[in-house]
């Protein structure tokens, strides 16, 4: 019985996450369009694109690793999703460890790199190099933010942090974690692949970088992966910094979970909006500018947060 129940729950989370993820992608396109004073495509446009890509008749492959990389990326994102507490519904909540989730959110990048590089296209190699340098750049502030969180709450389990925030109020109310949140938000900018730090998938300059060789269903799977990743990152941020959502006011558990999902959705869209606004304004950094930027301001902010949290 237990197995079926978890399987059902997993399916529910997956569908919900994919759907919301695509909605987020739609929102990003609409909001950026509106900022540029144009109408922008309908909100369900990304879903249409993905279905088009998946149904393409002919598709090419450069070998086993080219396919396995993509599958591995999507699989890892789904795995990451399962760990992040989603109100009452999540499955592996007890094992949702801060460090584990941060690592799991970075692994899809590895899968995509493998697939892109095995294609033998030099642009893909260049894109992989830039993606890795961005990863290297964001790791320092990300590390300090996680350290600040870990020390502030004395525990690494995301679920316990969410519970602690219910009583102590949202994380961003206390100074050290506010600094950590600001730094983490800048890091999110690069993890979403949004404007100032999206040199790795710059369409104009290196023809989408790693994605250059992907087409047809490979691109489709990548779109799904991107959607779930968007959902997972925003969910993780809102859980650890914006207090997550644990509502037990209503009688039946179904309504409670629905309410938590709604609250979480609001917080996630807030985070997304911040990212979109920053993205729409700033021009694209080159890779060493991005690295120098990340190693200067966000690192200082996050380090200050971590040190304050440690005292």
């Amino acid at each position: 019985m237990m197995v079926i129940e978890t399987a059902l729950k997993a399916l529910l989370i997956l569908l919900y996450a994919t759907f919301v993820g695509f909605m987020f992608m739609g929102i990003i396109r609409i909001v950026t369009a509106r900022i540029h004073r144009r109408v922008g495509p309908p909100i369900y446009q990304p879903i249409l694109d993905t279905i088009k890509l998946l149904s393409k008749k002919s598709s090419i492959t450069h070998g086993l690793i080219y396919d396995f990389g993509i599958i591995y990326a999507l699989g890892a994102t789904i795995l990451a999703l399962m760990f992040i507490p989603l109100g009452g519904v999540s499955i592996l909540r007890a094992y949702g460890d801060l460090i584990l989730i941060t690592f799991l959110l970075e692994i899809p990048m590895l899968g995509i790199m493998f697939a892109a590089m095995s294609s033998g296209n030099p642009w893909a190699g260049l894109g992989a190099q830039r993606a890795l340098l961005t990863l290297l750049a964001i790791q320092v502030p990300l590390g300090f933010a996680i350290v600040a969180l870990g020390e502030f709450y004395g525990t690494f389990s995301t679920y316990q942090i969410v519970m602690a925030q219910q009583s102590m109020g949202w994380s961003i109310t206390s100074l050290p974690l506010l600094l950590a949140a600001v730094a983490y938000d800048l890091v999110l900018q690069a993890m979403f692949g949004k404007e100032p730090f999206d040199i790795m998938i710059a369409p104009g300059e290196i023809s989408l970088g790693p994605m250059v060789e992907f087409g047809g269903k490979h691109m489709g799977i990548l779109q799904i992966q991107h959607a779930i990743a968007l959902f997972a990152e925003t969910l993780f941020f809102s859980n650890i910094f914006l207090g997550g959502a644990v509502i037990t006011a209503f009688a039946s558990p179904i309504i409670n979970t629905l309410a938590t999902l709604v609250v979480l959705l609001i917080k996630q869209t807030a985070v997304l909006m911040v990212a979109i606004f920053i993205g729409a304004i700033f021009p694209r950094f080159t890779i060493d500018q991005a690295a120098r930027f990340y190693w200067k301001w966000p690192t200082i902010i996050a380090a200050a947060g971590a040190i304050l949290a440690a005292l």
Partner: peptide, 27 residues
């Protein structure tokens, strides 16, 4: 992880048949 990869594989094999292309033939 295996469950995730299975789901992804299912989506992958639902798609069209793939034609193998040598490493030198790139975009």
């Amino acid at each position: 992880l295996v469950v995730g990869i299975l789901i992804a594989a299912v989506i992958y094999f639902l798609g069209a048949k793939v034609r193998r292309v040598p490493v030198t033939d790139t975009y």
